[in-house]
Design a protein around this nucleic acid. Structure first.
Lengths: 347, 347
DNA sequence: TTGTAGGCGTTATCAG
DNA sequence: CTGATAACGCCTACAA
């Protein structure tokens, strides 16, 4: 004999309540709410009506426990305040929603320890899959993931040893392309402003790709500055300021005619700083960014940059994850979503 | 007799496995992992050692089902690509982490139907609380929330009938303040560029506050334009373009000396458009924004704006929610985190 | 198409 | 401080 629903500790109507009210068994109700076809239309209707009347909302926790699947995936990002990630998160969100998955998201800065903690916290909720940013992780993280056997996608980088799957693009090539673009335009003394956080493969690759192109063209490849790493390095504001500071440092180094930046926000910071110094862009100083953030198209004279297809990358990551979760065959464990050079007025 | 852990369907070691290995009962293991003090140090150590050895990670789904608490809260936002929300989300994230809560987040644009769907999806996972953006919701949402009895915080607005709790600030006052700031500086023909999405109380309040101030000063209050509502209105790019278009519309309306914008991104769009038109800011055109996004401080000549304390608002929202969840007394169901006027070069 | 039995992995409760 | 037992609400597997 089941309790009166109103008096049950949880306060929620359960499938049993609905079953009793509709005069069917528990399993029939379960099938109705799972959209299992094996229920007659009449029964289904009656069950749904009673469910509605009782305010029944299925308890996924219970369902997950019984079925071993949670329809939830965990996403680890450096920051939620970084435009860089926003698009890819949105891409994942849209793809996941379409397949009726939900996600939890945790920001861990650039700390491998925090990342490991986040991964463990996720695993406690038994997600069906995980998305990590980048390809560098702590031993603890690797251990946890190995032990879990969970499908994992790493995003933004495809370089480096992969855990399982990855979605990204060739940062090294992209860095080379944007550098060659400036070279082709006749700029000779080209500076490079690095990302404020050291040790990230994707930014190392961008820089090395660009410097290799400079060397190949016989140009100086030592005009590199890297704004100091700050605690809030993952935030947008750090990048704006980093760009401004970077330009100052480069100008101290000597005559610089063009600046390549590891991210659009650095480039925006450079443009603003140039404005403050009375330098015209591109006439006195050419500027190129990386990322094609939304502001790149808006700021006069338009920022030349590498479009990174973050949205598609996020979508691809989620798509691979779901395929793996649902046992569908995967064409390849690495999805290269490419990039494109966007030439605007700044360089 | 329990199965061999390696052969169990889930593949995970369970508390029973750990208990058996450590030679204690299930409950002792449970207590250890809950940090219940009622376990001797020696026992605790032995249990943890065995847990580590077996790669045991507690299953929160099971724990939640048994305890009726999920240590999870659901957050509904319009967009993940909107800088506006990013800070408040980060504030919630930081506060929640500190109290060992996790969160799920869903973006629903400005659709009340999608919001309702998101709320139901959350409720299926039995969160301990919910955060919604704004104070306008569909009947279905209200019904679901009423039925759930869940603690709810609405953020960004405190106007309007509240479901339960709210964190925000007086948008009407803030709109008035920024308008009075321009008035005090001697600008007479002041235009207003509204947010591209109609029907949001917080933006209505900002506008009405500003217009009231203009009227009070005997200035024209009809120089209002509102960029057309687009599908992607929640995204940053729509705001940049909206600002540019808004300025064009205002200039068609006649001689405008200053522009008040419903958000910083609109204002940035205005500044860029002014630049393209050869108008100096603030000499030819004064511009004020709303929000104090990170770029506001960086763009020359600095954007005069209202700082909204989004981070603190997010933190306050999470804090109230947790207090309610954990049965701690709440000083007030509405937390006003205030705002401040930031005067920079643009106006 | 529908129903019965058993179990998913944890916590609450009460007893020792 | 430790243990036995009964839920928590649903799903899988099998049977009718």
């Amino acid at each position: 004999m089941s309790l009166d629903p109103m008096k049950r500790p949880s306060g929620w109507a359960t499938m049993s309540d609905v079953a009793q009210a509709a005069g069917v068994s528990l399993m029939t109700v379960s099938r109705v709410y799972k959209n299992s076809s094996a229920v007659s239309a009449a029964t289904r209707e009656r069950v749904l009506a009673e469910g509605e009347r009782l305010g029944f909302v299925p308890n996924l926790l219970a369902g997950n426990l019984a079925s071993g699947r949670s329809a939830m995936i965990g996403i680890v990002v450096p920051s939620l305040r970084n435009s860089n990630n926003a698009s890819s998160i949105q891409g994942m969100a849209d793809c996941l929603r379409q397949s009726a998955y939900q996600f939890m998201i945790t920001n861990v800065g650039y700390s491998l320890e925090e990342e490991a903690a986040a991964v463990e916290a996720f695993i406690r909720r038994r997600p069906d899959g995980l998305v990590l940013t980048g390809t560098r992780h702590s031993e603890e993280t690797y251990g946890l993931l190995r032990g879990s056997g969970l499908p994992v996608v790493e995003v933004w980088e495809t370089e480096g040893p992969l855990i399982d799957m990855a979605a990204g693009f060739r940062n090294h090539d992209a860095g080379g392309d944007i550098a060659r673009h400036l070279i082709a335009r006749g700029y000779d003394r080209i500076g490079y402003i690095d990302y404020p956080v050291p040790g990230l493969r994707r930014y190392d690759a961008r820089r090395e790709g660009a410097l290799a192109a400079l060397r190949e063209a016989g140009l100086p490849a030592d005009l590199v500055v890297s704004p100091q790493h700050a605690a809030d390095a993952a935030e947008d504001s750090a990048s704006f300021r980093g760009g401004a500071r970077g330009l100052a440092q480069l100008l101290e180094k000597g005559d610089v005619r063009a600046v390549l930046c590891a991210s659009d926000l650095l480039a925006i910071g450079v443009i603003f700083e140039a404005q403050r110094r009375g330098l015209g862009v591109p006439d006195d100083l050419a500027v190129a960014g990386f990322g094609d953030f939304e502001i790149a198209a808006e700021i006069p004279p338009g920022l030349t940059t590498i479009r990174t297809h973050g949205y598609q990358m996020g979508w691809a990551a989620a798509d691979m994850l779901i395929a793996r979760i649902e046992g569908r065959p995967l064409d390849a464990p690495v999805r290269d979503v490419g990039y494109s050079l966007v030439s605007r007025g700044s360089a």
